[in-house]
């Protein structure tokens, strides 16, 4: 039973991540602790920063700020230690927060189907609408507890499947342009999801995996250059192509390829031309061509 189905008014802990506030159900919170030493050791779970020691217990530190706000926390003041029930066991996780937390009681509005999985509910407080977080969707968990070594295959579920429309995630802050390009892509037979913020788009990767990401370079918080670096640094998304849309200058083109984007398109071209170009890229990738493989062949030659 979800948190919202059980009660209407709930105790929640408000936490601050940079300039934004988020909430967590109070019963999930174990304690708020002052910064302590973070121990780091070799591992491959990108979301985990390290571990802290609390009362002899090793607690993983999961920095959710970048995923929720698009920015890394530059100043950590506290760690909010939360608990997660996974099967019969109770796991602890420490979330770095940038300010003091506040315990409130508020009426919760259930999250809608269109909301991100990390949103469990919404609440209003001090004239601000705040996301109540679903911790399970934000923190990593073993794919299969029976086989601890089991890993998601890199890009395993994100390949382009013949016979099914390829999903395109279109990120552009210009809603009108997104709509025109989205329509052109749909005419080419693609399934299109649009987002105006790259940070939000990153959260959708987990539950609505696209085949290709098309992203503008001139976004305010995070553009194609940053998103390509983040996505390709994660082994499970390394095979996901990112296509940059820039202003057509040589500099933008060079920067895009240097950042690891798989292709570059001039955003000033007509939506029909851009959609056709994207189709060519998707088809060529489906046939097994990729820029990296091509370069590897050239280097070997």
């Amino acid at each position: 039973m979800s948190m919202v189905e059980q009660f209407d008014a709930r105790s929640c802990v408000l936490m601050r991540l940079g300039e934004r506030r988020f909430a967590l159900a109070a019963e999930q919170i174990a304690e708020l602790v002052a910064p302590s030493r973070v121990f780091r050791f070799a591992h491959r779970t990108m979301e985990i920063d390290g571990v802290i020691l609390r009362r002899g217990r090793v607690v993983p530190v999961c920095d959710v700020a970048e995923r929720l706000t698009g920015k890394k926390l530059t100043s950590r003041r506290f760690y909010l230690v939360a608990t997660q029930k996974r099967g019969a066991s109770l796991d602890w996780v420490a979330l770095p927060v940038s300010g003091e937390c506040e315990l409130i009681t508020a009426d919760l509005t259930p999250a809608g189907e269109s909301d991100s999985p990390h949103v469990a509910a919404w609440l209003s407080h001090d004239g601000e609408v705040i996301e109540v977080l679903n911790l399970d969707a934000l923190t990593p968990a073993p794919v299969d507890r029976a086989t601890p070594g089991a890993r998601r295959k890199p890009g395993g579920t994100r390949m382009i499947v013949p016979g099914k429309p390829a999903k395109i995630l279109l990120i552009d802050s210009n809603v009108l342009f997104s709509k025109r390009l989205g329509d052109a892509l749909r005419r080419e037979g693609f399934e299109v999801t649009t987002a105006t913020q790259a940070a939000f788009a990153l959260t959708t990767l987990e539950y609505n995996a696209p085949s290709v990401i098309v992203c503008a370079t001139n976004m305010r918080e995070m553009g194609a250059l940053e998103i390509a670096r983040i996505i390709h640094a994660d082994p499970k998304n390394a095979a996901l192509p990112v296509i940059a849309m820039g202003d057509g200058s040589q500099r933008a083109l060079m920067e895009s390829f240097q950042a690891g984007c798989d292709d570059y398109i001039d955003r000033h071209l007509s939506p029909g031309v851009i959609a056709n170009h994207i189709k060519n890229i998707v088809v060529s990738r489906w046939k097994g061509f990729s820029r990296r493989r091509c370069w590897a062949r050239r280097i070997r030659a």
Binding site: A42, H43, R44, T45, E47, I48, V51, R57, V58, V59, P60, C62, R86, S89, D91, W92, V93, T139, P140, A141, P142, V143, R145, P148, G149, R151, P235
Partner: peptide, 13 residues
């Protein structure tokens, strides 16, 4: 101590 469940990749091996 068991490796916390949040570590979910090769480090479990």
């Amino acid at each position: 101590q068991a490796l916390p469940a949040a570590f979910c990749n090769e480090e479990r091996v």
